[in-house]
Write a protein that binds this DNA or RNA. Structure first.
Lengths: 200, 200
DNA sequence: TAATAAATTAACCATATAGTTTAACTATTT
DNA sequence: AAATAGTTAAACTATATGGTTAATTTATTA
């Protein structure tokens, strides 16, 4: 591993291992090895596995959530927003395909995690989108839809195909490459589908 | 626990613990306790944790997958199919909310799992639905859509809100009860949304 | 009912694992 | 140069954990 600071090396190694094996499946020795350091040194920086995991998980949330929700804040027209969102989601998730399942699993194990050290309201503001949905509906441009159903639908369609990839590939008999193309095509297919659903 | 056969008690206990903690998070002692038996007896019935897990996981897949995919096989009109599906998914997942995340996580850990002992092609047959999508599109009743995109969209919208419940509740500031109602309302909201998206 | 087999238990074993300690060594700072 | 912080190897501790053994109890069968 190149010469980063030790602390950074630890965080990167820990993130890799935790994401691959989950909190309970990861071993401190494994993390030390991945970081190219001694196990004692690992504990020198982070007293316990719990503490290390927490640091890693918080960092991930702080990096991920803004990425995934910042688009909703912008002032772009609804349709543009949806297209941009699809593109960003697919690009991001192609690079971090294990992320959704990891985050959701650990969040299920300990739902408090999300709360700590994270001012959600500052990162995620849906007021703009909410107004947009209302005003577009009033103008007759789209059918009325609640912000909750809107968010759940779009995020589900973007994220779930990554989390459930092994299942979908098996059930639909799709090879790796074809599935990657399919995901890529969703950059435009999902927005088209979505806009069509919203037509009044 | 009531008097079931020991083997059944073990399977039930193991399923509970595995679903709650995952393969690596579960402890054999914990499973024995939950079953109300001795740990040695657990190994008497299932030589290893690996073996017990495999038995449980296979049983779950064999129970779940047909439930989730049988609807697609039927001869009902497309719209009816979609409404029925939404109702069944919500009902099933309200009763087994931890199921999706558990199955997907373990499938990611070991993607081979799905293959063993399971004749997918017999359980899941999408030919009927495929024909339906083509003929309805030819008749001009719906926009053309591939079976793959169709399946991914509908399953994502039905399943993901359960897997990502903790995240959605936090991000959208929804209390437990309200979220349950929201899920219930999706029995009709998702089909409406979906049919609207399919309009030519 | 005595013999045999199956079910069940308590105690045990071996290993893995998180975490600690000590002593030495190296680079950095004062 | 002395002191401080970072780093290593190695041995060690305490405990958790999967798995085993041998003995006991409870059916089953002859």
């Amino acid at each position: 591993m190149k010469e980063l600071g030790t602390e950074k090396k630890i965080i990167i190694a820990a993130r890799n291992i935790f994401i691959r094996k989950g909190m309970s499946g990861a071993r401190m020795q494994e993390i030390a090895d991945e970081a190219g350091i001694n196990k004692a040194l690992l504990h020198y920086y982070y007293r316990s596995k719990e503490q290390l995991f927490s640091a890693v998980f918080q960092e991930i949330l702080i990096q991920i959530l803004p990425q995934l929700f910042s688009i909703f804040k912008s002032d772009l027209p609804l349709e543009v927003k949806i297209y941009q969102l699809a593109e960003r989601y697919v690009d991001f998730l192609q690079e971090h395909p294990e992320m959704p399942l990891f985050v959701l699993s650990e969040l299920q194990r300990d739902p408090q995690q999300l709360f700590e050290n994270l001012e959600l309201s500052k990162v995620i503001n849906l007021d703009n989108l909410k107004d947009q949905l209302i005003s577009e509906a009033e103008k007759g441009n789209i059918r009325p839809i609640s912000i909750e159903q809107f968010m759940i639908n779009i995020v589900s369609m973007m994220v779930f195909p990554f989390a459930a990839r092994p299942m979908f590939q098996r059930v639909l008999s799709i090879e790796d490459e074809a599935y990657a193309e399919l995901l890529e095509s969703r950059k435009t297919e999902v927005p088209k589908f979505f806009m069509s659903a919203l037509r009044p």
